[in-house]
Design a binder for these strands. Structure first.
Lengths: 401, 401
DNA sequence: ATGAAAGCGCTAACAG
DNA sequence: CTGTTAGCGCTTTCAT
């Protein structure tokens, strides 16, 4: 391995001069020395050892990324977007960890990253508890958390360098029943005192809004018997989605027609992780089918679950959307290619990815930034999995061939 | 940040003793000193700085992973499996890079990883050219390449620690027309002399076999007009799949009935990457529909392309499998959940991931290992996207309701 | 404008 | 058994 000293020797200067060239300190060298050193660097094809540099400066261009599972296309896509933004805009590389939403693993990975000298990590929604995140932040990590609705958010506009129309909204516009959200979110800080302000930044789709929109779409199409489907593990984002869903349901249909809205969770014993959402959705079809009255419209907490559910329902001879309408959340590309195409609430993934990268790097540089809680707008993308219910009770309809 | 010296001070010993404890050199310390140091470590919650350690030893527990795009569930899954194996079996972390099959990016990422002191990287099939991989290997990297069929393979049995039934076969059993494979693969080494033995290890599904199996399945079901669909960019693995496909087609059907087999590539101008395979498949439906005679069975180079294709065909009023049968390759979980379920040639992903991790770490430790070329068996998983053709010419059939 | 020297936190001879 | 010493490759005062 060629070192800075080899370059120095070849150029006939000292190591410090080479270092100065490497760091672009044009002012500290004569033009001729500078170019002589440059030539030496090129001719040796020298590239400085980042480890040595990091040991000296304490800085590294590496950022941590913790997701539940890259096997879930949602997180695969997110990882792609984050890596692209980090790489192209800041020259950062990403160290990846799959947490499976396991707190042990997550903590261990944080520790690893800390030991590697990383100062910036992006974490995707783990369980409700946020203590380990705060701890990492206290240890000098810049951490931005994805998919955790903030508690008391004011409208915020993100001054993104790319500024690509990423609009950030507060959760209040839809706050009709935001007490639900807040009531639930109270448990978020766990044991920490209420004034132990979180040192982690939050960037998230507006999950309350997503639940609200999904529910509203079904109601607008005439559905009155609704269900919200999710895995057993509770997360902040899932709670917010439920809250939005229920809030809209409470508002009722036309002329205040009552809407029956139920939340159905997988059995707590379910052994499905984020890599097995499809199987879980399929398995839960029976649970839906057994409900009385059977819901005519169901919204799922994410697209993979919806796709699994549709398949399971199909096996049970329940047709989508004829017998049951389904709306997912995520807006995955693949959702357009299942049959029928899945109507879904899309999240602005690329914009959020950029915002997270920008933010985590900014905070690593400037730890005393005021905390950010940014909620990104979601939007409904309509496909073929929703239609009006065949009759008011959601009984199976008779269709002619 | 607490250092080894803080620990040493607290325990009343020297830094070296602490170091010895950290590295488990029980023999070099008295039992009592050892436990005193351990106590100090615990009480300070000390964790050694890996950067400093790496600078000193030259070793890091980080491995590089280069994939085309984690947005393709195939690679998202692979990333998950690799990270899991690396982490749980060796305590390694994974530095991720999305290459988009771009040689520039790939080379830059290799350089980055080298600068970070990584000594092990796993790369997924980039374009045909392998020079940059060899160069990295020459620079002291252990590189294992995924999804590149080896040229002159002898049967190899992988002595995997997990040994979970991962059977490794050579490509020769199916070599009826392996000349095709070899002829194509000749371009693989590019400008390097033939004796410049590749220093990179190869682990791959048996792509020739996969193509062969897919074709055979269609032929067995009575199809005689076949097509093989793929993106414009040529890779080693794609060539091998085509070769297997054509080889089986040449063998013909029952009693030597001739089989018409055509290869259809996306227009070279296509702007679709690994993140847009679904769209590409959908877009290529027209190409298929316009073929004369129209194929009754098509196999695609991967599942995402197949799923896109089915959707596109569907829009063209061509029913799957009634009008056209489709078989994909990869065996993605999601393929079971589209409608109809996609018949696909599955690759033993987890086993390959483990083999790659094991191998890349082994070679990093022992650079002079003989090169490995392991081909893993593929297998057909039947779902609902294949049925016998409705008539010999593949004309659209009339179905009664 | 340039170089000498110190040191980031750790490990590994080598002495004692 | 334990401590002293040197040094991994780089950056950064501080003299010159």
């Amino acid at each position: 391995m060629t070192t800075i000293h080899d370059v120095a020797a070849l150029a006939g200067v000292s190591a410090s001069s080479v270092s100065n060239v490497l760091n672009g300190r044009t002012d500290k060298l004569s033009a001729k020395t500078y170019s002589r050193v440059e030539a030496a660097i090129r001719s040796l094809n020298f590239s400085p050892n980042r480890v040595a540099r990091q040991l000296k400066t304490g800085h590294t261009s590496m950022l941590g990324l913790l997701v539940p599972s890259t096997a879930n296309p949602m997180y695969g896509q997110l990882a792609l977007n984050i890596e692209a933004a980090a790489q192209s805009r800041y020259g950062y590389s990403v160290l990846l960890g799959n947490t499976h939403r396991d707190k042990q693993q997550e903590s261990r990975m944080f520790a690893d990253m800390l030991a590697y000298g990383l100062r910036a990590v992006i974490v995707v929604s783990s369980l409700a508890d946020e203590q380990h995140l705060n701890e990492a932040a206290r240890n000098g990590m810049a951490v931005v958390s994805y998919d955790r609705a903030a508690r008391h958010t004011k409208a915020v506009h993100l001054s993104s360098a790319s500024g690509a129309g990423a609009r950030v909204v507060s959760s209040t516009p839809l706050s009709t029943s935001s007490a639900f959200l807040h009531g639930d979110a109270v448990s978020m800080s766990g044991a920490t005192g209420s004034d132990d302000v979180s040192r982690v930044d939050h960037i998230s789709p507006d999950n309350f809004q997503a639940g609200y929109i999904a529910c509203e779409h079904l109601i607008d199409r005439g559905h009155r018997h609704l269900a919200f489907l999710l895995p057993s593990a509770t997360t902040i984002s899932r709670s917010a989605k439920i809250a939005g869903f229920l809030a809209r349901a409470e508002e009722g249909g036309d002329l205040g027609a009552p809407v029956l809205a139920r939340v159905v969770k997988a059995p707590t014993a379910d052994a499905f992780g984020d890599s097995e959402l499809l199987d879980l959705g399929a398995a839960m079809a029976e649970q839906i089918a057994a409900m009385k009255p059977i819901p005519t419209g169901v919204v799922t907490v994410n697209d993979m679950l919806a796709i699994g559910l549709m398949s399971g329902l199909n096996k049970l001879k329940l047709k989508i959307p004829d017998d049951i309408s389904v709306v997912g959340m995520d807006g995955l590309p693949i959702a357009a290619f299942v049959n029928p195409g899945l109507t879904s609430v899309a999240m602005p993934l690329a914009a959020m990815a950029e915002a997270m990268v920008e933010r985590v790097i900014a905070r690593a540089r400037e730890p005393d930034l005021p905390p950010l809680n940014a909620l990104f707008e979601t939007s409904l993308v309509e496909r073929q999995s929703v239609m009006p219910p065949s009759d008011k009770d959601g009984k199976e309809s008779i269709r002619s061939c």
